[in-house]
């Protein structure tokens, strides 16, 4: 059988991408969070990396981006909100944000319905309406979706994220929640201790159960797990995507800074997508190439990708040595 030089080149690129992503050898479950400004090609990059990862591992590409571009690329149709087998080792999941937010709000509403008379007395009956638009509901859906994926048996989970600002906020929410949960647990434990003292003195009771305290412990456990996942370099890798244009690049630079400061992580890979050799992009490429992180360039393809096979063929346009080869020409 004759192997073409192009085939050899592509499999070589696949191997190198796996190495750069730290997927050269088997390990525990790995999450690759693909982050970037809207429209830079996060979904394209996510699909490309998932295809590469699935050559060796059971891989899930999960899109939590409300733009839902994954649906178009993979032709998911009405399979939104479900885990769908794509091919070989590759699975896909597209989050339906609106429906999930609605379901979550309804769930909260259902749990407090029997409290409504009391809430009315306290002028809190608006709570039911507020639940549908309470700040943090969307972010909670993102966190739950990622957590659910990590509880399945995928070896690699590639997450196509919402635009940068939202994603970075979501990634640091578990830490914020944990800080508050710590304070609330402290206060609740004091309340329960006092209740125990009263019960023991008056009635000789030995145990006082408190559902709120149990719930606080459960929440702390949940968000601590998420915080550990997001801040552990062995569990989560951050891939930042940009185009050779000023605004996307500025956002990439801010994201690098944010991840380094708030998550104590370094980007695993910087991806510059749709790179042409136009002189106008020279300055940005020069700055990009000076960054001390692994880099991957995807040159602009003649036809913009719109299907799975289009994205697969982008491997021909991937260059992991662009900066080393082209820096002198920039």
């Amino acid at each position: 059988m004759e192997i073409s030089s192009q085939h050899f080149q592509v499999s070589d690129v696949r191997g190198r991408i796996l190495d750069v992503l730290g997927l050269g050898s088997p390990g525990g479950q790995r999450i690759l969070a693909v982050i970037g400004k809207g429209g830079v090609g996060k979904t394209t990059t996510s699909i490309l990396l998932s295809l590469v990862a699935s050559t060796r591992f059971k891989t899930l590409i999960m899109s939590i981006d409300p733009a839902m571009h994954l649906v178009e690329y993979l032709g998911l149709g009405d399979a939104i909100g479900r885990f769908v087998h794509v091919k070989g080792n590759l699975w896909a999941y597209q989050l339906d944000l609106d429906r999930s937010v609605r379901d979550l709000a309804e769930n909260y509403t259902m749990h407090v319905r029997d409290l409504l008379p009391s809430l009315k007395v306290l002028n809190l009956d608006d709570v039911i309406d507020i639940m549908k638009s309470v700040p943090g509901l969307e972010e909670e859906v993102y966190l739950r979706t990622v957590r659910e994926a990590t509880m399945r048996d995928f070896e690699v989970v590639v997450v196509d994220t919402p635009p940068t600002g939202v994603t970075l906020r979501v990634l640091t929410l578990p830490r914020l929640y944990n800080l508050w949960l710590g304070k609330l647990i402290e206060l609740r434990e004091r309340i329960v201790a006092l209740r125990y003292m009263i019960a023991r003195t008056l009635y000789g009771e030995r145990e006082v159960r408190d559902r709120a305290l149990d719930k606080l412990y459960k929440l702390k456990d949940h968000y601590s797990t998420l915080e550990k996942i997001f801040t552990s370099p062995t569990h989560t890798s951050y891939i930042l995507v940009s185009n050779p244009e000023p605004l996307p690049y500025t956002e990439m630079a801010k994201a690098i800074d944010y991840i380094t400061r708030n998550l104590n992580q370094k980007p695993k890979l910087l991806v510059m997508n749709k790179v042409s050799l136009a002189p106008s992009s020279g300055d940005i490429m020069r700055v990009f190439c000076s960054l001390q992180f692994p880099k991957m360039v995807i040159r602009e393809a003649p036809k913009p990708p719109s299907t799975l096979s289009d994205v697969e063929s982008l491997l021909d346009y991937v260059d992991l040595d662009f900066c080393e080869k082209s820096l002198s020409h920039l």
């Binding site: 909260y108 009391s118 002028n123 709570v127 639940m131 972010e139 559902r211 709120a212 606080l216």
Partner: peptide, 28 residues
């Protein structure tokens, strides 16, 4: 949940509300 800023994230409030039935009735 009613716009009073206490710092507690509203999601934590929503998660806890269902577990605070007796306490809410006491407040009532």
């Amino acid at each position: 949940l009613v716009g009073v800023v206490t710092g507690v994230p509203p999601i934590i409030s929503l998660e806890l509300l269902a577990e605070l039935g007796d306490e809410v009735r006491y407040l009532e």
